[in-house]
């Protein structure tokens, strides 16, 4: 969001890996600003064996980059 005004061409990557069978989120990746601060919470979710539906049912904190992790609706790869 910051870069809409700064004009920077920096991009951010966020990624969840979900096991098809159990719907469990087995991994999370982020490359981007404050990734370090964001991923610790996700690590707890992964350790707690939460599912993608748990992520989907979580209300995002708006406006943040972190909320993208609970609003991922499209599958990019199987």
């Amino acid at each position: 969001m910051k870069h809409t005004l700064s004009g920077s061409d920096e991009r951010c990557l966020m990624k969840l890996i979900v096991d098809d069978e159990s719907d469990r989120v087995v991994g999370a990746h982020m490359v981007g600003e404050e990734a370090g601060e964001i991923i610790q919470g996700l690590a707890i979710a992964v350790r707690a064996r939460l599912t993608k539906s748990d992520f989907d049912a979580t209300v995002g904190i708006h406006p943040t980059a972190a909320e993208e992790f609970v609003t991922m609706r499209s599958v990019t790869r199987r």
Binding site: V26, A28, H29, M30, V31, E34, A35, I39, A43, V46
Partner: peptide, 18 residues
């Protein structure tokens, strides 16, 4: 299974649970 952190490019930090 641990949270892996790295001070990647200044703005670009990466943490992966794997």
């Amino acid at each position: 299974r641990h949270c892996h952190r790295s001070l990647l490019p200044p703005q670009y930090r990466y943490r992966g649970a794997l």
